[in-house]
């Protein structure tokens, strides 16, 4: 199991997100995070998927995405030089004694304090999903009241042309078949 990042470009039409999530649910794919937003092209939205899956399963997700009529293209960023970013907002408890320590952590993580009151700070942090996870971890001892993460967005570095064919046009023997398939419950 590893993390896989896929970018799907979809037509910005009603119900398209529903189609994507319905596919994920129906095929029982495990999604770590899914974000959606506009792109440089009008009428085209961009979805970033992070999957915790085997190579085999990730390819099936990708091939199935291609099958949706409103999906224009899918890019696999897993093995390409890519930038992955996420934004998090953390509301953390502070006391006069801990405030300085927390502010120091904010400094170290290059985060920003965006709201202050007598008992809490709201901190905005951006970076890789791992960094945000780390930040959450170090703040935990002070008392995290609320945490929200946007999910990852990603972009390839450089200007290499991106593929526009599903992965299985060239087959690879899937080394690991998901064992569940073999035990499918069967009925009349």
């Amino acid at each position: 199991m590893a993390k896989h990042t896929r970018i799907a470009y979809v037509e910005d039409v009603p119900g398209v997100l529903n189609r994507v999530t319905s596919l994920v649910r129906r095929r029982n794919f495990n999604i770590d995070s899914l974000t959606v937003g506009r792109t440089e092209q009008p009428g085209v939205s961009r979805l970033t998927f992070v999957l915790e899956a085997s190579e085999h399963a990730a390819r099936l997700v990708e091939a199935n995405l291609y099958k949706l009529v409103n999906v224009l293209r899918v890019d696999d960023l897993t093995h390409k030089p890519a930038l992955t970013r996420e934004l998090g907002l953390v509301k953390v408890k502070v006391t006069p004694e801990t405030r300085a320590q927390v502010l120091q952590l904010v400094e170290v993580f290059r985060a920003r304090v965006v709201d202050v009151d007598e008992a809490t700070l709201v901190i905005e942090v951006t970076g890789t999903p791992e960094k945000i996870g780390k930040f959450d971890l170090v703040l935990r001892p002070y008392g995290v009241v609320e945490l929200v993460r946007t999910g990852a967005v990603a972009m390839a570095r450089g200007h290499e042309p991106l593929s526009s064919n599903p992965p299985l046009v060239r087959a690879e023997v899937a080394a690991e078949m998901p064992s569940e398939t073999a035990d499918l419950a069967m009925s009349v």
């Binding site: 199935n64 291609y66 099958k67 599903p166 299985l168 087959a171 690879e172 023997v173 899937a174 078949m177």
Partner: peptide, 13 residues
């Protein structure tokens, strides 16, 4: 393409 390697791993698709 979604049928490839879905149930049975194949050598050539």
């Amino acid at each position: 393409p979604t049928e490839m390697n879905k149930n049975v791993p194949v050598d050539v698709a």
